[in-house]
Each structure stands twice: as C-alpha cells, then as structure tokens.
Design a protein around this nucleic acid. Structure first.
Lengths: 136, 136
DNA sequence: GTAGAATCTAGACTTCGCTCTAGGTCAAAC
DNA sequence: GTTTGACCTAGAGCGAAGTCTAGATTCTAC
C-alpha cells in the first residue's frame, strides 16, 4: 500500500513535466518534503498527486506560484490556520469570478466584431471596413 | 478637426503607459505610421485611440501581441483580406469561450474547497483537513 | 526667456514560469 | 554485466510583455 511513484509517473499523472515537478519542489509547493530512494530518486505518493491536481486547477485559474506557495505553507504548518486558508481561497475565487466577467465583457466586443465582419464578407461589402475610415 | 493627441493624452485615454505605446509602435501594432510633430513628438488621432481600445479588449482577453500584430498587418494591408481577419477573430473568440469554460470548471473545484473550509471553520472541526490525512 | 514637465531614442533590465543543459548516477531489461 | 533509459543537482537560458534608464530635446506656463 502507499505504492510510491517516480517523478515520471507523477508527470504522467498530472500533466506536469519532470522539470516542473522539480521546480515546484524547489519553490516549496509541496505539502511535505518528498522522500528519496536509496539512490536519491524522488518517491511520491497518491496524496502528492492529488495535491498537484488541485494545484493545476489553481494555476489554470490564474493563481500565481507565489500565492500557491503561501497556501502550501499554510497547509504545511498544520491545523490552526484554516481561516487564513479559507480567506486565501475565497480571494482567489473572487478573482476567478472577476476574470470570467472580464472575459465575458470582452467576448461581447469580439463577437460584435465577428458579426460585423461576417456581414461584410457575406455581402461582399467588406471594402473600407477599417482603413482608412475608422468604421470600428 | 482631427485634433491630434500627445502620447500622454493617448496613455490617459487608453490606460496604456507611454512606454507601452512606444513599444506597441515598435512592434507594428498600429494601423498606420504615427506622424510626428516638427519636434519629433508623436501625433495620434481619435482613430488611433479607438483602435487601441479594441487592442485592449483583445489583449485583456488573452490575445498575444504576435496575433494582434498579424491582425494589424491584415488591416494595414487594406481591403481584400476580410475573410482572413474574420477567421482570426473567430479563432480568438473560440479561444475566449474555451477559456471561460476552463475557468468555470476550475471555479467549481475552488468553490467546493471554499465550501469545505467554511463548514470546517464554522464547526471548529477544521483540524486534520489537509495534513497528514489527505482529505482533499 | 526660463523653469519644469513631457517627450524623444536606444537599449538594458525585470518578472514569471518554467525549460533546457551539462555532467553525472541509478535502475531495469536483455 | 552491459546497455539503455530514467533520474539526479546546479544553474543557465528563454519568451512574453512590457518597464525603466540615460541622456538629450521639445513644449508649456509663467
């Protein structure tokens, strides 16, 4: 039980490169020191992979390494700081919601442009869309 | 008419820094060569600002400078390539929609975490949430 | 007509988040 | 038992997107 995984296994399981995994470790993003085999190879376990999968979600949603590092440090430092962890996660959640709203607003503008171009291209009336007349 | 604007005016109107405006020009992101005053100062006009505002939307929504450059080049090269411009915009729109979907998926995971932490913090049963037990 | 603010060019520097290299060691298959 | 591939450390390098500096010039307001 608790079969240990090589760095290559973990890379395959998480989509991260072995380079990235070593980088994450250097940056202190793990919840524990990753143990080594007699020969010095890293020995991960399933919990490490689970944590990395959460890290992936946080990273994909725009959390900087520095923030992830703070979160990992909080978790590593053990029970007692859950309100801080919660606030960090809530703050990130707010950020993600704001980002989605921003993207949605951009999308409207972009889709508007697409529609304009579609109409012009279909009509063959595209000439002069942008230059030199500023027709938006 | 066509009152010309200084780089500072344009920076104020677009939220871009004067450095960024000069950088954009070097990168060829404008639809025309920006003319200069007798003394060498840039003279922008309202159409430049409008274009930059669209650029801002494209950039905020994740379009790389390189793509923006391609789009600007298409527009600069005049009428005839509207289908290409359309395809570029459509591709970007697809990307933005995909990004929103990705963020939304992340949000579910993150919000799930927040909910778990809220419950634990409120109950005072937070101990052991993460370490050493992998409780997600 | 002069002080101070804004602008100019060219190019070096920064931050982020990895990625890659060099020069080895370890482990698994044949 | 040797070859081949995975892994090790330390540290350099990279691409994106600006930012900042230096040193000179121009413009604006008094």
């Amino acid at each position: 039980m608790a079969a240990s995984l090589s760095i290559g296994d973990v890379a395959a399981a998480t989509g991260l490169s072995v380079h990235a995994l070593r980088f994450f470790e250097r940056e202190g993003l793990f919840l524990r020191g990753i143990p080594r085999s007699a020969g010095g190879h890293r020995l991960y376990d399933a919990a490490d992979v689970e944590w990395l999968l959460l890290c992936n979600r946080l990273r994909e949603s725009g959390m900087p390494i520095a923030t992830l590092k703070r979160f990992a440090a909080l978790v590593r430092s053990g029970p007692g700081n859950e309100p801080e962890r919660l606030e960090l996660l809530r703050e990130h959640e707010r950020g993600v919601r704001a980002r989605i709203a921003e993207l949605t607003a951009c999308l409207e503008v972009i889709h508007g442009k697409v529609t304009v171009y579609e109409r012009h291209v279909e009509d063959g009336t595209a000439a002069g869309l942008w230059a030199p007349l500023p027709s938006s």
